[in-house]
Design a protein around this nucleic acid. Sequence first.
DNA 1: TACAAATAGTTGTTATGCTAACGGAAAAAT
DNA 2: ATTTTTCCGTTAGCATAACAACTATTTGTA
Lengths: 147, 147
Amino acid sequence: MLTEKYNQYSFILDRTARRVKQFAQTAFAQNNFDLTVDQWTVMRTLHETAAMTNRELAEMCGKDQPTLTRIIDLLIKKGLVERASHPSDRRCLTLQLTESGTTKINQIAPKVAAFRMQAWENLSDEDFTHFVRILDTIYTNLTNKDE
Amino acid sequence: MLTEKYNQYSFILDRTARRVKQFAQTAFAQNNFDLTVDQWTVMRTLHETAAMTNRELAEMCGKDQPTLTRIIDLLIKKGLVERASHPSDRRCLTLQLTESGTTKINQIAPKVAAFRMQAWENLSDEDFTHFVRILDTIYTNLTNKDE
DNA sequence: TACAAATAGTTGTTATGCTAACGGAAAAAT
DNA sequence: ATTTTTCCGTTAGCATAACAACTATTTGTA
């Protein structure tokens, strides 16, 4: 492979990821969701698998623990999530959506799914398959195997 | 297209972009480059096309102006870049690498290109073509056409 | 010419990503 | 049983991303 040819992949990847997030964030604002995209990701994960610890939730959201702690702080301020103590391990916390949080998720989830689709205009199912395979391969290639 | 199937593309994209940046940043640290990945991107762009204004450079780097201003501030602190006044428009500034900055770019550019390649193990030239096409299409799909 | 609109760069604010470090608690080792 | 190690969550510090607001300057227009 020619080295020069691949010099730009990082730029393209970064640029596209930021555009996707920005596009979603603008849609969130226009619909008065009063959430950031990342806060929504956390709530959505918590909705699918309730009562996780901070560490488990961070893992599932693809975020590190400090970042997740701060996002949870903001969601608690908004009354959408609550922390409870873990029954058997006093180091852990159990996180779950409040009733208000569950209501919110159910309200906005279909809308989010709808405008997310706009990214895939002019692209095929096969492209989606390529997309997942290539990006996951890159991710794996750059992940430390010692873990 | 099935909506559910595409719910995760944003997650994959974001996760991969962060991994790529993190991988590069770790390599930078191990080689004592004393630069962030974004600072390197700015320097590299400035090296290829010298004497740009803040706005032009931001555009080429895919960053917004406030972000670029702050990155340039840091690079100036390190003595790698300098701001000069624009000859014909007093609103503008002309940015360029210092001699020290040019030396640094030439020293580290080959190393960066080398470890960047690690992302593409187990992937083909055809995959790279798919990658560029798909991500650029997504970017275009989500870019406001009114500009 | 005078005034309104647009442009360039900066600064402020909030949120996130990453690393390091810290305190409390549990697990492992001796 | 005590010590050491590991683990969990949080906090702190720095850099970046996005947006709004501000100053200075230039351009467009009446």
